[in-house]
């Protein structure tokens, strides 16, 4: 059975990061895109939140391209103007 998704409050707190750039990108994504995602993509976003700040920043700034195509797709959404 699939595990239940965490409450929104928890995700909102997990979007609080050590870098201002990530605060904006992640909270923006949560507010604008998360609710409309498929359950698989919602789970993927939750997984993305577990990655290190530095890697997330590298993805968002385009310094590093994620090898996983699905992560690439979500990161592209994050890069849209926040």
């Amino acid at each position: 059975m699939e595990s239940e998704l965490p409450p929104l409050g928890q995700l909102r707190w997990q979007c609080r990061r050590g870098m201002l750039e990530l605060d904006y990108v992640l909270i923006g994504f949560l507010d604008r895109h998360y609710a409309g995602l498929s359950p698989e993509d919602q789970r993927l976003f939750i997984r993305i939140l577990d990655f290190e700040d530095q890697l997330l920043l590298d993805w968002v700034m385009g310094n590093v391209v994620p090898s996983d195509a699905n992560i690439r797709r979500l990161v592209a959404l994050m890069q849209m103007r926040t």
Binding site: W13, R16, R17, G18, M19, L20, D53, Q54
Partner: peptide, 12 residues
């Protein structure tokens, strides 16, 4: 820590 330690601002 109010956030996970490696998410502290020092990371910036």
């Amino acid at each position: 820590s109010k956030v996970f330690p490696t998410r502290s601002h020092t990371v910036a």
